[in-house]
Amino acid sequence: MVASAPPWAVVLVPVILAGFAFAAAAADGIFTARAAGVRLTGAVAAAPLAEVARLLAGQRRATPAADRVLWRSGLIAVPVAAALAAVVIPFGSVTVSRMSVGVVWFNAMEVLTWAAVWMAGWGANATLGLVGGYRFVAQGLAYQLPLMFALICAAAGAQSLNVAQVVTAQAHLWFAVWMPAAFAVYLAAVYAFSFLGPFSYPAGRDLAGGVMAELSGPDRLMLQAGRWLLLTAGAGMAVPLFLGGGAGPLLPTWVWSAVKTLAVLAVLVWARRRLPTIRADRYAEVAWVVLIPLTIVQALVVSLVVLTRGGVPL
């Protein structure tokens, strides 16, 4: 049973989110250092903190005739969207917001990034950034529908849009076990909306950083932190949706939540550099012709199971 947290716990949401994001960035630094053959020291693991320090002290940049309002709004909206999306994720057996439509809320907050990243690309009045911003929207058109169908699968399995009830419905069997296609599509979509890993097309090196090409100082910190926070929020949401929330033997529920979130983050960060960039013009075809029918079939399976069981969780 997932209960409501005391009111002051709202303060902990960004703190915990940032903590996990830092752990993910540190792990990424460690994997990169291993691949490059660099000796692993404490400094490697603390690299995200050094990066924050460097960016805080850095100077911002102003391009000529930039659209400053859109630019800054876009940059700030990315981490804000991540934090808002994370508000419905239960930690253990408490949740800060017992929204009855938590799944839809998560989807809606993630969609905010479409506007935010496009604005970040447009606002700078720079060609490479502009191309990067439009690339994100093209990528969005490809990943969004399979993601929505995956969320529908999880919601249909529990017959509820309330995240707490989705957790309860997995008491006997995790959704990741009997909805594997939805789980896999969801994880790919987490890469896509945080534009990291194989879906870093909008911020790719071929565009000299794309939407990040003209950013420095606190601006860059906002967007870079936003990406990692989005990845963390996505990984955190995978736990109640597909991995049974805080359920587990022996240990308290919040420990299980944390362990499962870290496990998903570890997989995402490990696989991040192992695939080439998947470009939207190639991916759109695969997403619409393969992934959407796949997730629709998955949703059909789920709804048939739910029908035959008469609403009792599997």
Partner: peptide, 14 residues
């Protein structure tokens, strides 16, 4: 805390 208070005027990078 930054090194410079005002942003650096730049030309977009290509």
């Amino acid at each position: 805390l930054g090194v410079a208070r005002s942003p650096l005027p730049v030309v977009p990078f290509t």
